[in-house]
Design a protein around this nucleic acid. Structure first.
Lengths: 339, 339
DNA sequence: ATGAAAGCGCTAACAC
DNA sequence: GTGTTAGCGCTTTCAT
């Protein structure tokens, strides 16, 4: 009854109670080798009886590692990242590692994160999700002096887990082309000033797909904007106000596609009869909205990238890169063109 | 050029380099009082020059606090929790506190979290989001020996920030009743075996609203299921197969409402002409789907609950509770009944 | 297999 | 205002 006098018990106490030295107690508790089974058992029993857990701070100070992994994401309110972090946390906690979360989405937070490095001396490794790093950021991360693994995007500099963005977008483009579309627009989430040589994979697949089909690129059909459904809605408005609107739209993501669908519905334009729309990601709401899209397994990516850091921590650092497959999910928002 | 020899510099080094004692260096660096401005400046300069940051482990060990807040959520892939955690992390990081994330949604994870208490000795406070605790869990949390603050739900035991669920659902019910509906169904996210005396606020508002309008409760119209749009879709199927289907549906959440809308659309039933649907939360996709709903400010809740722990840590522990207002957002999914 | 002892890097009394 | 001195609770050689 009542809380057991929560007066923190130390390892010294446990050692004494078990009739062994602190060294032995430490070995037993940390599951190290060189302890007689019987001794280990006794120590463990005493520890359990007194509800003892080692002080992570002291352990880290003396031992050199923190047992924490820093996870850096640009957002959490977007489904993709929430799902990813949920999967990562699940694996890490199974491994007895803690997740230290850093949200560094908008430019200001991002700058602060990479300049101040709040994770310094606090983590054993860093997991960067969905943030393609600049050279300067890459240099800053190196200061942390810990391993880095990346996920959910294309990163040459670190071991990573990702889909092939270009391949995914190609699957979407192939679908539209197969249906017979030739006047195809893309709404991309990318800075409008980005030069062609550093287009993201999805944009490259768009231009390549057109080129391959012998369709000249009409720059008015290549709309660059923000991510998010509002941006998608506005982009669709621009596309509709064109003298010769597209018969099909490839959205950089499902969320952008949602916005495009909204604009089309409000304009009274029927999908897919008058305009086809295809997204990428297979967001949970895509099924709801009957949006044709390209599926990627986000949860699996999170699990794999988390396992990758665990492996790295274990010292078996293979500088690997895992690329997960994607596939088309045909639904009701795409059909052959009527023009 | 190259990484500055990352050999970790200690406070002793900084002190020596600045020509002061470690104590003074410590005071200067921790922004404590009792240091001559000039001295402080010098220490700070030396520290910056050598790119020094204190060891959190050592500091925690000696000082007694960790600088970390444990944040416990049931999910992250759902918008509500992602948004909440994003807001919390934002405030905490502004305060120089780190966010230790724990996802304890499904029964198994939840049990493990509360039994093993992985956060023990690792955090200065705990923030529980969206998990109404059982008495046993409450007792377990006490073992942590740190302050607890709750958010996103109704919690009597701790200081908390939340909306008034009953009031929010009442706003929805009032709207439906005002429109003239009398055959109103509710799809609730609650275990079907829950006795009436421990209904959640939203369910209470439903039964109370009916009673107030003199409408007898038809238990076949009160559908209890899981959260999530799939559950909502299935519940709507059940409601449609009733001999006398409802003219309006109150969904426990927007996500459930999304599922209901899907079923209605697939059944070719027009909304709101034949059936009205109203949700609660004002999920970003609600606007997209033109769903009438009750708005709550999730981001603000996250910010406030985070500030509450900061206040608590500062010692000004007011056992307060903040209840944020909600309001109806009329959109196109509700209209007067036609039957 | 076990123990003794030396830190890990810092904070907090307590003196001066 | 600044310095001295104990620890904080553990891990880890190095002995035994």
């Amino acid at each position: 009854m009542g809380e057991s006098s929560s007066s923190t018990i130390t390892m010294a106490d446990v050692a004494r109670l078990a009739g062994v030295s602190m060294a032995t107690a430490s070995r037993a508790l940390s599951n190290a080798s060189g302890v007689a089974p019987a001794t280990r058992a006794k120590v463990l029993r005493v520890a359990k009886e007194h509800d003892y857990v080692v002080s992570p701070e002291a352990s880290a100070l003396a031992g050199g590692h923190t047992g924490r992994i820093g996870v850096v994401v640009p957002h959490l309110s977007r489904w993709f990242f929430g799902e990813m972090v949920e999967a990562i946390e699940s694996v890490l906690s199974d491994e007895g590692l803690d997740t230290l979360l850093y949200v560094a989405g908008d430019p200001e937070d991002r700058h602060r994160f990479f300049m101040n490095l709040p994770a310094r001396r606090k983590v054993d490794a860093i997991l960067v999700v969905g943030i393609p790093l600049t050279a300067a950021e890459h240099r800053q991360l190196a200061i942390l002096g810990v391993g880095v693994v990346a996920g959910g995007g294309q990163f040459a500099a670190y071991p990573y887990v990702s889909i092939d963005d270009e391949a995914a977008a190609k699957q979407a483009m192939d679908h539209l082309l197969f249906l017979g579309h030739r006047r195809i627009a893309m709404i991309d989430a990318i800075d409008p000033n980005t030069p062609e040589w550093q287009f993201d994979g999805r944009a490259r697949a768009y231009t390549a797909g057109l080129a391959h089909a012998g369709i000249p690129l009409d720059s008015s059909l290549f709309d660059r904007t923000d991510w998010g459904s509002d941006a998608g809605a506005e982009a669709m408005e621009r596309l509709l106000s064109l003298p010769d609107p597209p018969t099909a739209v490839l959205a950089h993501s499902d969320e952008i596609a949602f916005g495009a669908l909204r604009t089309l519905r409000r304009a009274g334009i029927r999908v897919p009869e008058q305009v086809s729309v295809i997204g990428i990601d297979d967001h949970p709401m895509a099924a709801q909205l009957d949006l044709t899209t390209v599926h990627q397994d986000v949860r699996l990516q999170g699990e794999m990238v988390a396992k990758m850091v665990v492996t790295m921590l274990a010292g078996e650092t293979k500088g690997e890169a895992v690329v997960l497959p994607t596939h088309l999910v045909p639904r009701g928002s795409t059909a052959p063109p009527n023009r």
